[in-house]
Design a protein around this nucleic acid. Structure first.
Length: 680
DNA sequence: CTTAGGG
DNA sequence: CCCTAAG
């Protein structure tokens, strides 16, 4: 039968099944791609800090908000909603403040830490607390995600270097100061013309909105930045359940006492429902767990170690102190999804940090050693939207619409007051900004390290799609920025030393997707200085509220805390292409011929062999490509000639395609066995 | 990593 | 071409 078929089709190679067994095809594509996908996102914490301040400042306004909004989903009017989470309850609250709105999810479980809370508590308006407290059951471990929005607008000459493009540093105002302005300044480059200012805009329609303005900004594109999530344990705080701004989720596991260890483990357990089932792995930018140390008035950090020491000294009970954990959302998102708010996948992120086996991070490495002890954590991730604008004069214009603070996890006792809760959140946020911020530039998912490259060199030109351009905010490193000497700034301490949070992996971030309508593309990037990875973006979008997984990050002293990542996304282009699509390379007739020949010989189920046999040297043709091409060839051969498009394939080849297809579709399974028999 | 299919 | 589920 075999022979018969052979003759029938006239395939010379038919009888001998060629089974090339060379080295497995090396697919650059696969690894490359994956790498990109997996690595992404950095959290951005900057905003969080701002938000924290705002909270303080906006005490008065806050109370009213808390009582009123009922709509959970709305950003400005959060509602309280209870949801069952896998393992715990998460409380999500959205608060508005002047110039910024913060949405947060708290996770609570707690470590005792009243001092700070109480002090801060006093600052909050009573109305708020009352409302909150009213009839509220305790909700252990809530998750809070905070979002801060502001607008960034930028216009940069294409010939500016990356450094210029990315301001070297973003400085946050001191937590204590009443003024809201924060500036991002470009450093090192004399020519940079970017000056970003983040300020609370009281005039804004939305009181809670924070505006970030870059001088000379021209455009309206929007970018949102998200901050990494943190977990903070706050002792004795009670959460309201019915108020508008808060969403609550019940957690299943509340049993554990407060310990850092316990905490961490639990933290892991917590995973947003939305995230469940997600296959994609996300990387966490930040380290896993962060602990917030009580505010130390007397401590100043010259270096992280010092900081830590001081902190410890100051702390009463470190072990029990509240812990703020920053989670880095790791979920990958698909860039193209619309309307999704940002989502995070803590697990993924943490995994990435941990070098989880899953995609992405695998091979890349984070050298823990480098970061060990340094506790650099990239905790926040920022996602933004970017709109590419057409510009004239070779200037690239884009604006970052907003920064978002994704998640903040807090562990707090049920009986804690709202005020304490607020204070805790504020501290956590503020702590993030302590070290100042640095801006990173991510192009096509890859962080651009070379500050001397011009935008043009990086492919950032006015006529390019800016969708692949994004920015990250990173906590300033000691090196990059001087450790702030501030007092009363909450300190994030590593909760568990044993935790690996110190790994550089912590630095990895994941990409988040932007949410709103336009097509959000998300990028995440980790900016640990030591780590650089390409961050791929995904299309998946996760709704932030629902999706957030949580994994905790350990906050390290501000000094050591690093990186918030901000990613801007291009909204304009619907198609988000963080992961750029391979350039299209139509098959030439000769390639088709080679393919047909190989398939006639090998059959349609052995694409790897086909590749090796006929396209061994064509690196750009993967076996999947060949398979796809065959698929299209079959289709082409099936349809009428006038319906065919592209380079016309000789009819004789198509005939062969059809013949081989028909033959193999019926014999591919049996054939092999028969061949073997024949050979024998 | 490969296949096989859907998108 | 991409993305994924399945081996």
């Amino acid at each position: 039968m075999v022979l018969k078929k052979r003759l029938q089709y006239g395939f010379s190679g038919y009888s001998v099944p060629v089974i090339p067994r060379g080295p497995r095809s090396v697919r650059k594509r696969g690894s490359h791609k994956k790498t990109l996908k997996d690595s992404r996102i950095c959290a951005f914490e900057l905003l969080a800090a701002v938000a924290g301040k705002l909270l303080q400042e906006s005490e008065s306004s806050t109370s009213s908000n808390v009582a009123e909004g009922l709509h959970p989903s709305s950003i400005h009017n959060g509602g309280i909603k209870q949801e069952q989470l896998e393992k715990g309850e998460a409380l999500k609250s959205e608060c508005r403040d002047q110039g910024s709105w913060v949405e947060s999810v708290f996770s609570s479980e707690l470590a005792p830490r009243k001092r700070n809370l109480e002090s801060s508590f006093g600052e909050f308006p009573r109305a708020v607390s009352d409302t909150v407290l009213e009839g509220t059951p305790v909700i252990p471990r809530s998750k809070i995600s905070t979002k801060v929005r502001h607008d960034l607008k930028l216009e940069i000459p294409e010939n500016k270097t990356a450094a210029e493009n990315s301001p070297g540093k973003v400085e946050g105002g001191s937590p204590n100061c009443g003024d809201i302005g924060r500036q991002i300044k470009a450093e090192g480059n004399p020519n940079h013309n970017v000056d970003l200012t983040v300020a609370i805009n009281s005039n804004s329609k939305d009181p809670m909105e924070i505006q970030v303005n870059i001088t000379d900004s021209l455009i309206n594109s929007d970018t949102s930045v998200q901050l990494p999530s943190y977990r903070d344990s706050v002792p004795n705080a009670s959460f309201p359940r019915h108020k508008n701004n808060v969403k609550l989720r019940r957690r299943v596991d509340d049993k554990n006492p407060v310990g850092c260890n316990v905490y961490s483990s639990k933290t892991r357990a917590i995973r947003p429902q939305t995230c469940i089932g997600h296959r994609r792995v996300r990387k966490l930018l930040a380290s896993k767990y962060w602990k917030v140390a009580p505010t130390l008035e007397d401590c100043e950090f010259s270096d992280s170690d010092e900081c830590m020491k001081n902190v410890n000294r100051c702390r009463k009970a470190p072990s029990t102190s509240e812990v703020i954990q920053c989670l880095v959302p790791l979920k990958k998102r698909k860039l193209c999804d619309h309307n999704s708010t940002l989502a995070r996948d803590p697990e993924g992120s943490s995994e990435s940090i941990l070098n989880s086996p899953e995609k992405g991070v695998k091979g890349e490495k984070t050298s823990p050693a480098k970061n060990l002890g340094r506790a650099k954590v990239v905790s926040s991730s920022v996602v933004g939207h970017q709109t590419s604008l057409k510009s004239r004069d070779s200037h690239v214009k884009f604006s970052i619409k907003s920064f978002k603070v994704p998640e903040l996890y807090i562990d707090i006792p049920e009986n804690a007051t709202v005020g304490l809760l607020k204070g805790t959140v504020m501290e956590a946020v503020t702590a993030i900004l302590q070290g100042g911020l640095r801006v990173g530039v991510v192009v096509h998912g890859k962080k651009v390290k070379d500050d001397n490259k011009t935008l043009l060199q990086m492919g950032i030109s006015h006529n390019e799609d800016l969708g692949t351009l994004s920015f990250t905010l990173e906590a300033g490193s000691r090196i990059a920025s001087q450790p702030p000497n501030r007092k009363e700034v909450p300190i994030l301490l590593p909760c568990e030393t044993h935790h690996q949070f110190s790994r550089s992996a912590a630095m990895e971030s994941e990409v988040l997707n932007a949410s709103f309508d336009p097509s959000p593309a998300t990028n995440v990037d980790n900016h640990a200085e030591t780590n650089h990875e390409l961050v791929p973006s995904t299309r998946e979008v996760i709704k932030d509220e629902t999706a957030p997984d949580s994994r905790a990050l350990v906050a390290v002293p501000a000094v050591s805390v690093e990186a918030l990542a901000v990613v801007s996304v291009n909204q304009k282009t619907r198609r988000c292409e963080l992961v750029q699509r391979r350039t299209r390379r139509p098959f030439s007739v000769s390639e088709v011929e080679a393919l047909v020949e190989a398939v006639e010989k090998l059959g349609t189920g052995r694409w790897r062999d086909v590749k090796l046999s006929a396209f061994e040297n064509a690196d750009h043709r993967t076996y999947v490509d060949l398979k796809d091409k065959w698929k299209t060839l079959v289709h082409t051969a099936t349809i009428s000639p006038h319906q065919r498009r592209g380079e016309t394939v000789p009819q004789d080849l198509l005939d062969r395609v059809l013949s081989a297809h028909g033959y193999w579709s019926h014999h591919q399974h049996k054939l092999h066995g028969k061949h073997l028999i024949n050979l024998l």
